[in-house]
Simulated scan of single mutants.
Amino acid sequence: MRDWRHVRTERLWLDEPVDGDADDLFAIHHDPASWVHFPSGRVTDPAAGPVMVSASRRRFERDGLAYWSVRDEAGGPVVGRGGCMGPDDGPWWNLYYRLDQRVVGRGYATEMGAVALEAAHDVEPGRPVLAYLLEHNVGSRRTAERLGLRLVWRGPDAGNDDPAAVRLVYLDREPDDALVTAMADRGMPATGLVG
């Protein structure tokens, strides 16, 4: 298995977060423009930056993979956070991408996401990769589809302030019975499976 803590792509530096990344990570997650599709998800507590750093560090240590700090120049500011991380209560890798609005539209989410899928398949190939997003977030949907993920579930977004919000789940493979059960335990019942 490869060490995935530091990865270089054509345009990006993907690195295990360090303490100095906390302010940039908070700023990206605090920006209302990053949350137009889910305003109540906006991060408002500055302590969230250090929490993001420590969460990734713990998961890199435990699983060999977690969310990276994304840069588009060596030693430059953090322009995003993303990668695959295994939730404590799910048998999948969660694919995540959130970028500074100043770099949205450059294809960075797709470039980072492709490496994240490669890393997940290297670290634990039997574990599916899941992208969990809102239906009206067209950009996020397109990224998941460009990465080759397939829509497998569509249903209400439990707990969302908007009762009309629809949640989508994309996977890198067909869900097996164990995954369907785990998804149902997280509020994604089999009745929402797309097939």
Rank of each mutant, 00 (worst) to 15 (best):
D172M: 12
D15M: 13
M112E: 11
D21H: 13
A55V: 12
D89F: 05
G49M: 12
N160T: 10
E73C: 11
A66L: 01
A182D: 01
V51S: 14
A22H: 09
L14H: 10
R81V: 05
A164S: 14
V194L: 03
R11Y: 00
L95Y: 10
D161C: 05
H30F: 03
V115A: 15
M188G: 09
R2H: 13
A164H: 13
R81P: 05
D63Y: 06
P128F: 04
L117T: 12
R57I: 02
A178D: 13
V180M: 10
E73Q: 14
A119C: 07
R2Q: 12
L149H: 12
P39I: 01
R11F: 07
A114W: 00
T181Y: 01
V104I: 15
N160L: 08
S54E: 15
R98C: 10
D161H: 13
L171V: 07
R11N: 07
T9M: 03
D185H: 06
E118A: 15
G83D: 02
Q101R: 15
G41Q: 09
L151I: 09
H6F: 13
G159K: 04
A109N: 03
P125K: 08
S34N: 12
G155D: 09
A190V: 12
R59W: 02
W68S: 04
T143E: 10
G90F: 12
A47C: 05
P163H: 08
W93F: 02
A164W: 00
E16F: 04
G83T: 11
P50W: 03
D157I: 07
N160I: 03
L65R: 07
A66F: 05
G20S: 15
L179C: 00
V166Q: 10
L134M: 14
R62G: 07
W92G: 02
V70I: 15
H136Q: 15
A119K: 09
E111A: 03
L25A: 10
L168R: 11
E135C: 08
P77I: 07
M85Y: 06
A114D: 07
R127G: 04
R167A: 14
P189D: 01
D161E: 15
L151W: 08
G105W: 05
S34E: 08
V180L: 14
W93N: 05
P189S: 06
L179I: 07
A48N: 07
Y97V: 07
H37L: 06
L168M: 08
L65N: 05
W4E: 03
A120E: 00
D89I: 07
R186Q: 14
S140K: 03
L99V: 09
R154S: 15
A164V: 01
R98H: 06
Y170C: 00
V103R: 10
H30W: 09
V43F: 03
Q101S: 15
F38Y: 12
R62M: 05
P50D: 09
W13C: 08
H136W: 15
R154F: 02
G139M: 08
A182L: 00
